[in-house]
């Protein structure tokens, strides 16, 4: 149990996907203009990364390893994730328009997101068990959401701040992102892994 908790905390804070591993920077900069959309994107990532982890874990241990084709890991994982997200999107759009409104529009954006793929590959690299993988993916998604929401909050305030003209817009967002990442370095070394 402690082990699982450590994996979760490590994924959220110490090895935050966005701010420590620098994965998923595109949505981090792209969809962080409003806290509201950042939360939506974060929720979608938690959802997709968990589902993707389940299926890629199964693909790794029941398809790739028995056939000894681990070298096709990246290809198969992308195939699995992309198809899965498409499928989930269709199902959600039809069965629950309300959920689609909240999550669905973010799904196409994360089909081949590096954070999701990176997470699936890390699960295998670290030889996590099935349960550990799922906990790790939820933690990674939560960490992503945390980073997104913090950053969106900062950017909303930046819009009202007297930023010097050459720094306005993306430039100041990059600076803020860098500082936020440095703040998260404070967690470094608290949990190994």
């Amino acid at each position: 149990m402690t082990e699982l908790l450590l994996i979760f905390v490590s994924a959220v804070f110490v090895n935050n996907f966005v701010l420590a591993r620098f994965l998923g920077i595109c949505p981090f900069l792209g969809v962080s203009k409003k806290v509201e959309t950042a939360v939506g994107m974060g929720m979608a990532v938690i959802f997709v990364s968990t589902v993707a982890t389940v299926f890629t874990w199964l693909a790794q241990y029941y398809i790739l390893e028995p056939f000894q084709i681990e070298y096709l890991q990246t290809l198969v994982f992308i195939l699995v994730i992309a198809s899965l997200v498409q499928l989930v999107e269709m199902v959600v759009q039809k069965t629950s328009p309300a959920l689609y409104q909240a999550l669905g529009i973010f799904l196409p954006l994360i089909t081949t997101n590096c954070a999701v793929l990176g997470l699936c590959l890390l699960n295998i690299q670290k030889t996590y068990s099935f349960i550990e993988s799922v906990v790790f993916s939820i933690g990674a998604g939560a960490g992503f959401t945390l980073a997104m929401v913090l950053f969106a909050g900062i950017r909303e305030s930046l819009d009202r701040a007297p930023v010097p003209k050459p720094f306005r817009g993306v430039a100041i967002a990059m600076v803020a992102g860098g500082l936020l990442s440095m703040a998260f370095m404070g967690f470094g070394g608290m949990v190994k892994g």
Binding site: A59, I63, L64, F67, Q68, I69, L72, L75, V76, L79, V80, S83, L84, Q86, L87, M90, V91, Q93, K94, T95
Partner: peptide
């Protein structure tokens, strides 16, 4: 050969599933 067949089978499985889903869940 196993590689081609295995990956091909995975791809085919998803292609058929997506194709069916697109019809069934058409909006």
């Amino acid at each position: 050969l196993t590689a081609i067949i295995a990956v091909g089978a995975v791809a085919l499985f998803f292609a058929i599933t997506l194709g069916l889903a697109a019809k069934k869940f058409h909006v």
